[in-house]
Amino acid sequence: MDNIIIIAVAALGGLGLVAAVVLYFIASKFKVIEDPKIDEVEEALPAANCGGCGSPGCRAFAEATVVSAKEKKSLDGLFCPVGGNDVMQIVGSILNLEVTTQAPLIAVIRCNGSHANTPAKVKYEGASSCAFAHALFAGEGGCQYSCLSEGDCVDACDFDAIHMNPETGLPVVNDKCTACGACVEACPRDIIELRKKGPKDRRIFVSCINQEKGGPAKKNCAVACIGCSKCEKECKFDAITITNFLAYIDFEKCTLCRKCVEVCPTNAIHEINFKPRKPRPEKAPGAVPRKPVPKVAQPDKPVTMETETETAVAEKVEKKESPDNGKA
């Protein structure tokens, strides 16, 4: 009996010992020397693996930062859009490097071709995929630059930050947006752009990418940019350029003075999260403030908002104070 126990212990112990020795040699032979900082950096990253930084995942980004820190002594060109400046500061402190802060970005939908603004001329039936619809036809409203409302951007978002508004048929971005750029990639029409989030979330942009001449553009959509260049003349900061009958506001140069918004004849320029401006009854109806007054009735304000309901809905949802609306 004792013998059996001894044999068993010896056999198993011996086996264990042999295995341990083999493992030791294999482990030392195939050891990969890795900078422990990679793990540290990875630890600090948001682990979303979204690819928004350009690297195929957080681990790859961590490796890239460590390599960059070693070779270039800087983290230029490397930025985690999801973690933002906070995370980049931590990464910088791990790697003992100064990190320049970058202005946070947010995805902006540059189309206002809602069902009301761009009335449908044909009815689309088929796979719910913008990419397919884009290959098939110009769009229900006839504008070949317009949003196709099939929600490829919504599917692409890993952060639950973009949703379709069934009333307008346009996507709406909420403040969960990390500017990873997945929706920008997904949109077959390049409607979505990453723009500066702006102070207090205020931003001004042209909500249109139609490059047709004014006439044809306006034929399909009531709120298209017609390239009239009024805003370009109005802008004192050279922030607005017109190419191919389309105005574009450079968000680096824009000072959010809101002058362009007032002059736009088609309401194609949107301002978001600004306080309602003082009423200016003598102005043309096209330039009224776009944001509805939240709840509190202001009887002294002129009621000149009939063209703005669509934008108002979209903006209300985008508004930071009421993120719940975004869950359409």
Partner: peptide, 8 residues
């Protein structure tokens, strides 16, 4: 009438 558009 509103025509339908779909793939073949």
């Amino acid at each position: 009438t509103m025509f339908t558009v779909s793939g073949s």
